[in-house]
């Protein structure tokens, strides 16, 4: 499979109240054609900012991309002129946002919001655009599409709105979809439906997907590969399978241990990661996870560990990855 997107050493910072926030600090990741990459991490680890940086949607002020490359199909998106970048958005890369309740415009019909993307990129005539809108509505499983097309977002439920968002992202036939926590705002019962739909569409249409989530359960079921982010960095990378079997970073290990599991005794306590992630405006020297890490030692306080190969197809940014006790608690 060919390489579709390669992000190299991306640095995005925000400047607020005289402080410099290192939201994304030297992040590299890649997506191959048709695959699903999960980006996992807790709130504020820079996963959404990474996605917005790829899309060129970081608002200035307060945010700015300071360095790096975003190579998409051989072109560096960061070097494109605004007009060229506009042509990439919506046409070659679609995006699905977290909040389907607020991400659709309340005063425009669903038809208007679906077809305008086609008008913007393919100069499609209204009748043809309407046909295409009906087609994607069918693909994302919205019944009674001809009627639903004329309705407004408030007439849709949360799950249906997220289907509209997915239809909107797909309508121009993009190569890549960025889904930023697409199910976080939905009912648990709907979450699985939406994810299964996205996975199915991605497979059938051959669209690659970057799935941003904090939910490890989602990763296990729907992702081919995983990048775990912490405090603006990728700290572990590998196939979803390998990551579950042999986590090579204490943070990943901690995440896995803090997930409640049905197959364990109810009396057994969860094992949370103690402490808070570091302040991105005042990062400590050395490893960023050090303060919360049970394996931390002197080296960790001195030098920031680079992301290095750690076993079969896995990468870890930990000095001690070989010494982690991988048997899960």
């Amino acid at each position: 499979m060919g390489r579709l997107l390669e992000v190299r050493n991306l640095k995005t910072r925000f400047y607020t109240q005289g402080r410099e926030i290192h939201a994304v600090d030297d992040v590299s990741l890649h997506v191959d054609e048709g695959e699903t990459l999960a980006v996992v991490g807790e709130s504020g680890c820079g996963k959404s900012v990474t996605a917005l940086s790829i899309m060129g949607l970081i608002p200035w002020p307060p945010g700015k991309i300071l360095g790096g490359e975003v190579i998409f199909q051989g072109r560096d998106l960061l070097a494109l002129a605004p007009q060229e970048m506009r042509q990439v958005r919506g046409r070659e890369i679609g995006m699905v946002f977290q909040e389907p309740m607020t991400s659709l415009n309340p005063v425009l019909t669903i038809e208007r919001q679906l077809t305008e993307t086609l008008e913007a990129h393919q100069a499609m005539a209204p009748a043809a655009a309407r046909e295409r809108a009906l087609e994607v509505m069918g693909q994302v499983g919205i019944p009674d599409a001809p009627t639903r097309l004329l309705q407004y977002p408030h007439q849709y439920s949360g799950g249906m709105r997220q289907r509209v968002m997915i239809a909107m992202a797909l309508i121009c036939g993009p190569k890549l979809i960025l889904a930023d926590e697409p199910t976080t705002a939905l009912d648990v019962t709907i979450q699985a439906q939406i994810l299964a739909l996205m996975k199915d569409l991605s497979r059938r249409l051959g669209v690659a997907m970057i799935l941003i989530t904090h939910n490890l359960g989602v990763v296990a079921r729907y992702a081919d590969r995983v990048n775990v982010m912490y405090a603006g960095r990728v700290i572990e990378r590998g196939s979803a399978r390998a990551l579950y079997a042999t986590p090579r970073h204490p943070y990943t290990l901690g995440l896995l241990r803090s997930v409640p599991r049905l197959d364990r005794s109810r009396k057994q306590r969860l094992d949370p990661i103690e402490g808070q992630p570091p302040d991105l405006g005042a990062l400590p020297q050395g490893c960023r996870f050090r303060a919360r890490c049970p394996y931390a030692e002197k080296t960790c306080a001195e030098t920031d560990p680079p992301l290095v190969p750690a076993g079969e197809g896995q990468w870890s940014a930990c000095w001690k990855w070989e010494h982690l006790s991988t048997k899960s608690a």
Binding site: M55, L57, R86, Q87, V88, R89, G90, R91, G94, M95, F97, T102, S103, L104, N105, P106, E116, T117, A120, H121, M165, M168
Partner: peptide
Amino acid sequence: YIRTARAKGL
């Protein structure tokens, strides 16, 4: 929804 509109490349 303004961010969404931007993401559509309008």
